[in-house]
Simulated scan of single mutants.
Amino acid sequence: MISIITPVYNGESFIESCIKVVIEQNCPDIEHIIVDGGSQDKTIAVVKKYAENYPHIRWISEADQGQSDAMNKGIKMAKGEILAILNVDDYYQPNVLNRVQTIFENLPKNSFLVGNCKVWDETGKVKFINRPEKLKLKELLLGWSINPHPINPAAYFYHKSLHDDIGLYDVDDHYTMDVDFLLRVVQTANLQYKDEIWGNYLDIEGTKTFSDRESGQGVKRMENLFNKYNQQLSFLEKLQVKVKGYWFKKVWSKVEYFERHPDEIPSVIIQKINVFTKPNS
């Protein structure tokens, strides 16, 4: 069984579409656990309406300590051996849950399965597709611009038993708890990546992650988190991360400069580009 956990607080704008997304997956062996933090809007009224007609929906509503606490409550309630976190404003591609269930039939215990995720802006356009192909700790610690981590839980699934090894989400962390979880998971789990689009994530103004990034605080939080896990690497691994990161940033800064100043691209580079892009006669 797949247990899908949705933490929510005052989410009446999205909760119905979130519930429908799971229903429309037409996956028979699931439960959808909705963990509400004591919403003051119509969230619970919507949840109750659907729960009366769909027995796979389970829910609680009570005060909590934030998103991490809500997810931990859902994990403890879960009956499935496979876990998924679906935030109230994110959604799956069609038939993802059946596809994931089939893959897990051939995976060993403590597996972490990752697909790709579409990232949308407020105008309904895809900003980019997150393709987290490299998942080892020392690869992720090179940073987002080199090896992006899985950006949203709508595109990954894992065995509940992983929490027995790495613990639950950090209740005191309200911003980087998902990345902290990932950096612990990749050191323990059997990692599997599929080059398939599974999740959809709304990166829009007003959301917690968007606001934190725009304020500049998000970057500092991520730096602190990565520094913490960098200390767990061997001396050689630390050196590899530092050297690779240095050279990538050096090359990338040149690329960004010439994007802004194309007239300054050396003529020898332009000649080589013309040779490679010249149509065959």
Results as ranks from 00 to 15, higher is better:
6 T>A: 03
83 L>D: 05
51 A>P: 05
277 T>M: 13
2 I>F: 09
60 I>Q: 11
175 Y>K: 08
177 M>V: 04
38 G>Q: 12
72 N>I: 06
257 Y>I: 10
211 S>M: 11
36 D>M: 02
242 K>Q: 15
182 L>R: 14
84 A>N: 14
77 M>A: 08
109 K>Y: 02
231 Q>H: 13
274 N>A: 13
5 I>Y: 03
101 Q>L: 15
23 I>H: 11
74 G>Y: 00
61 S>C: 13
21 V>S: 13
81 E>K: 14
18 C>Y: 04
249 K>V: 00
130 N>I: 06
202 L>I: 00
78 A>E: 10
41 D>N: 09
138 K>Y: 06
259 E>C: 10
92 Y>G: 05
104 F>Y: 12
201 Y>Q: 11
120 W>A: 01
219 V>T: 12
26 N>L: 07
196 E>Q: 08
278 K>W: 03
109 K>E: 15
165 D>L: 15
199 G>D: 03
259 E>I: 11
36 D>G: 02
98 N>D: 08
265 I>Y: 13
132 P>L: 09
235 F>Y: 09
72 N>K: 07
105 E>Y: 00
268 V>D: 13
261 H>V: 01
144 W>C: 02
103 I>V: 15
36 D>K: 06
103 I>M: 10
220 K>A: 08
166 I>F: 06
87 N>P: 00
80 G>R: 01
7 P>R: 05
224 N>E: 14
175 Y>T: 11
46 V>P: 00
248 F>Y: 15
50 Y>E: 05
12 E>F: 09
80 G>E: 04
229 Y>W: 12
49 K>R: 15
42 K>L: 12
217 Q>L: 09
265 I>W: 12
29 D>S: 15
177 M>N: 11
216 G>L: 04
163 H>W: 06
91 Y>I: 07
99 R>Y: 15
